[in-house]
Amino acid sequence: MAPGTIPPAEALELAALITPTEHGISSRVLAKNGGGTVTLFAFDAGEALSEHTAPFDALVLVIHGALTLTIGAKTVEARPGAVVRMPAGVSHAVNAFEPARMLLIMLRERPA
């Protein structure tokens, strides 16, 4: 098991796997291998990940709260249960306008 990842064959509560940071962002890698990573994030209200690009596709799954994702020129509001794909090479940013949690799944294989 890689450091910081979760143990195999156990049912774990996502809420118990991360401690939110007041006025900040917390993250924890849940799984990582050559194919990608799964990272749990907790945002306090008003926190954001600034605009950046990644060489790989990524999926955002909103677990709690609400997030605004800016992907290229498009703005998407995502609430619990929503999944949003962020394509490789396209600038994106994440803003939490209320406390929120999300799973970020990075797909390490470059698109064809």
Rank of each mutant, 00 (worst) to 15 (best):
M1I: 09
M1L: 10
T5A: 05
T5H: 06
I6V: 15
I6C: 05
P7C: 04
P7W: 05
A9I: 00
E10H: 09
A11N: 01
A11C: 03
L12H: 03
L12V: 03
E13C: 04
A15N: 12
A15T: 12
A16L: 09
A16N: 10
A16Y: 07
A16Q: 14
L17G: 04
L17F: 06
L17V: 06
I18D: 02
I18E: 01
I18V: 12
T19R: 14
T19C: 00
T19E: 15
P20D: 07
H23Q: 15
H23G: 09
G24V: 06
G24F: 05
G24R: 08
S26P: 00
S26W: 00
R28W: 02
L30R: 03
L30M: 06
L30H: 04
N33R: 03
G36P: 07
G36I: 05
T37E: 12
V38H: 04
V38C: 12
T39M: 03
L40V: 05
A42I: 04
F43V: 01
F43Y: 12
F43D: 01
E47V: 00
E47M: 15
L49G: 01
S50K: 13
E51Q: 14
T53Q: 08
P55W: 08
P55V: 09
F56V: 14
F56D: 08
D57H: 13
A58M: 12
I63V: 13
H64F: 08
H64I: 03
A66P: 02
A66E: 15
A66L: 00
A66N: 05
L67G: 04
T68V: 11
T68Q: 14
T68A: 09
L69R: 09
T70D: 08
I71T: 11
G72R: 07
G72T: 08
A73Y: 09
A73F: 09
K74V: 13
V76R: 08
V76Q: 10
E77D: 13
A78M: 06
R79A: 11
P80T: 03
P80N: 00
G81C: 02
A82H: 15
A82W: 10
A82T: 12
A82I: 06
A82G: 02
V83K: 00
R85W: 05
R85V: 11
M86T: 14
M86F: 12
P87M: 10
P87R: 12
A88W: 10
A88Q: 09
G89Y: 07
V90K: 10
S91I: 05
S91W: 09
S91G: 14
S91Q: 12
H92D: 07
A93W: 07
A93Q: 10
N95S: 12
E98G: 04
P99G: 08
P99H: 11
P99W: 13
A100M: 05
M102H: 07
M102S: 08
L103Q: 06
L103M: 10
L104A: 07
I105M: 13
M106A: 12
M106N: 11
L107Y: 06
R108F: 11
R108T: 13
E109C: 00
E109K: 14
R110T: 14
P111N: 02
A112W: 01
